[in-house]
């Protein structure tokens, strides 16, 4: 097994997440794409932890932190989506222009 395989997989997953983040119309799907990107970052951290720092596995500690932040982000993000849906009666990202102009 090589480190490069895991890094390439994480890079591909991150790029798919970026594509979906920009092109999704539904706000819930945007949150799902953010989760995909956070998972790609986690895979990077875990690969570095296993291959470059196998004695002090600091990458796994960082991954636990990222998982925690992702859970908090999902909860608050979905609450915001629900709140906007109640006010604007839509989940279309193109019509969420409250702060745009």
């Amino acid at each position: 097994m090589h480190l490069q395989f895991f890094l390439l997989l994480a890079a591909a997953l991150f790029c798919i997440g970026v594509y979906g983040l920009i092109n999704s119309r539904s706000a819930v799907r945007v949150l799902m794409c953010i989760e995909l990107m956070l998972n790609a970052v986690n895979l990077n951290l875990m690969a570095f932890s296993n291959f470059l720092d196998p004695q002090e596995i600091r990458g796994q500690v960082f991954t636990v932190f990222v998982i925690t932040i992702a859970a908090a982000e999902a909860a608050v993000g979905l609450a915001i989506v629900l709140s906007i849906y109640r006010n604007r009666d839509t989940v279309d990202m193109e019509r969420f222009n409250l702060l745009k102009w």
């Binding site: 706000a27 979905l78 629900l82 849906y85 989940v91």
Partner: peptide
């Protein structure tokens, strides 16, 4: 949580 949000925002909307 995401599945619950999908069910709560269950609106058939054609963008």
């Amino acid at each position: 949580l995401i599945l619950f949000a999908i069910m709560l925002v269950n609106k058939k909307e054609d963008f």
